[in-house]
């Protein structure tokens, strides 16, 4: 058993340039294991860029340049010797908008495990377990072969969550994953994330301060590409040290 407060993901001197723009400046942070870390800040300050730098999805954009280190249990994911597909298997993503793959509900879950060599014999169990995990099983068990695009948006997002979990990641990145959902679905996903932190390290970007207050164990406050303040949620929210954090929490900036 790992120690709950130990650092899981640690960001060292991370700089990101987007086009010619210096989008993230010398980011340093330690993301604790099996807790929910929220990245908060006004829109356009680099939250999503930071998140996507944590599983190297940012490098899909040809204009992005990254320097610095992101250490997953001490191993730099930007090390040229590291296999990027391995990184993304261990660090999953739940996107802002639900994005089912163009296949059936069943195949959406089975897609990842199949790629990673899961035999088809046990696949039914894998699919059922993960759909149950996100409380979707009862709603879809009779139409597993139907196209995933037929689900409601809230169901789709839970499906995407199940799909991400099916490859057994250690870290789950969430990019404002409830912002496209109706309030009831959003609360359902929040509830799931809150439960998932027992087994996963969750890093979520949000611009919804109320949500951050509900969920966060650890908070990173970003302002114009820099980390202004970070720490346990109760400290950052209740006794912020920085004036800019205080102003942001009070709704004066951003």
């Amino acid at each position: 058993m790992t120690i709950r407060t130990a650092t899981h993901l640690s960001i060292r001197n991370l700089d990101v340039w987007y086009g010619g723009q210096h989008a993230l400046k010398d980011i340093n942070a330690d993301i604790p294991r099996h807790q929910i870390t929220t990245i908060v800040g006004p829109s356009g300050c680099g939250k999503t860029t930071l998140l996507k730098s944590l599983n190297r999805l940012s490098e899909l954009n040809t204009q992005v340049n990254v320097s610095g280190q992101v250490l997953l249990d001490g191993i730099d994911i930007y090390d040229p010797a590291v296999d990027v597909t391995e990184v993304r298997t261990r660090i999953g993503l739940l996107a802002q908008k639900p994005c089912p793959l163009p296949m059936s509900i069943y195949d959406n879950i089975a897609y990842g495990p199949r790629i990673h060599g899961q035999k088809n014999g046990k696949m039914d169990d894998v699919v059922r377990t993960h759909l149950q995990d996100v409380e979707l099983w009862d709603e879809v068990k009779h139409r597993l072969k139907a196209p995933a695009t037929g689900l409601s948006v809230g169901q789709q997002q839970r499906l995407c969550l199940a799909r991400a979990l099916a490859v057994r990641p250690e870290v789950l990145l969430c990019d404002e994953s409830t912002s496209a959902l109706d309030p009831i679905s959003a609360r359902a996903v929040e509830r799931l994330l809150d439960r998932l932190k027992e087994n996963y390290t969750v890093v979520m970007v949000t611009h919804d301060l109320a949500q951050a207050r509900r969920l966060a164990d650890y908070v990173l406050f970003i302002w114009l590409g820099e980390v202004v303040e970070q720490g346990p949620a109760r400290h950052v929210f209740n006794q912020p040290r920085e004036p800019r954090t205080r102003a942001y929490l009070a709704g004066e900036i951003g």
Partner: peptide, 8 residues
């Protein structure tokens, strides 16, 4: 192994 095969 599987990973090498995928990359090949």
């Amino acid at each position: 192994n599987r990973r090498q095969r995928r990359h090949l």
